[in-house]
């Protein structure tokens, strides 16, 4: 099991080593580092299997965050940095990963990582991060067939949810659960724009709506919105959700209703998808180099 360290605002820093793998017997060892705006993950893979990972908060500078996470992943394994033959960086700080030979965008890495975590049947991946929302359709090998990324508008991102959790003074961890505590499902908030939705919600509260009813209306609006984004790339089952909102039952269950599909349960923390994908690309690139 993963050992857990300091508690941060909404998730725990953690690291893990796979007890069933002896890395000294592995032929190919690769690394993947995903430097996001909030968290940084480093994973080490042995022959394409997950050997170790570390998940930390991103500090003020990307190179240091990448280094810290990478070192923590190696900690206690007896492995040295030089044993990792190829490392790929991804995420928004991907060009600032010092040990990486190559940087690859999060869309490609995410798709590849989702294929690893959920198995080859997953075809549609929704990733809802703090500041963006991605919809990706992939084939059975994890290759991207169609994608879109919405990072212009806060509606449909974790940030939009935070605005509501602030407005209602309810912890971001509880909003999803609370939104389920309604007898009758209210109509969704009609404004898509977070700023206007906030004004609308203030009006609803003034009319005497309970907080959980307002949350239900917002979670429903959010589910409707990401559904629209998903429809642009086309929804094919199986379907999986990653990113912070994957933990928000209020949005997830309403989205599942709209799609008529259940989301798959992952093998690992979904935050790792990008880093795992990066390490798998590293393996492919290394094999290509060796052939030359």
């Amino acid at each position: 099991m993963a050992e857990e360290k300091k508690e941060y605002w909404r998730w725990l820093e953690s690291r893990w080593t796979n007890p069933n793998i002896n890395w000294r017997q592995a032929k190919i060892i690769t690394g993947g580092v995903d430097v996001g705006s909030v968290s940084t993950q480093a994973v080490i893979m042995a022959d394409g299997d997950l050997y170790a990972f570390a998940n930390m908060r991103t500090g003020s500078d990307s190179p240091n965050s990448a280094r810290n996470a990478f070192n923590w992943a190696l900690e206690g394994t007896g492995m040295a940095e030089t044993d990792v033959k190829y490392t790929v960086g991804t995420g928004y700080g991907r060009v600032n990963v010092p040990m990486a030979k190559k940087a690859i965008t999060e869309i490609a890495c995410h798709a590849r990582g989702a294929n690893f975590m959920y198995g080859p049947t997953v075809r549609t991946v929704l990733d809802m991060g703090g500041q963006d929302c991605k919809a990706i359709r992939i084939d059975d090998k994890g290759k991207v067939e169609s994608f879109l990324m919405n990072d212009k508008c806060a509606a449909g991102t974790g940030r939009g949810m935070e605005v509501f959790s602030d407005l209602l003074t309810i912890s971001i961890n509880d909003v999803g659960k609370m939104s389920m505590e309604v007898d009758v499902e209210p109509e969704p908030v009609s404004s898509t724009c977070v700023i206007f939705a906030k004004t609308e919600a203030t009006g609803l509260l003034r009319q005497g709506w309970a907080k959980n009813k307002v949350l239900a209306a917002y979670c429903r609006a959010m589910a409707g919105r990401v559904n629209e984004l998903l429809q642009r790339v086309g929804v094919v089952k199986d379907f999986a959700i990653t990113g912070g909102i994957a933990k928000n039952i209020g949005v997830v269950s309403r989205l599942e209703n709209l799609l008529g599909l259940k989301a798959l349960t992952p093998r690992h923390d979904t935050q790792l998808a990008g880093a795992i994908g990066a390490a798998l690309f590293a393996k492919g690139l290394l094999e290509k180099d060796l052939k030359k």
């Binding site: 290759k143 169609s146 508008c153």
Partner: peptide, 16 residues
């Protein structure tokens, strides 16, 4: 592969 660049905001969908 179909790459959709652009965004959707409150006012509509703008993708290339």
């Amino acid at each position: 592969m179909l790459a959709n660049y652009g965004y959707k905001d409150g006012s509509g969908d703008y993708f290339i």
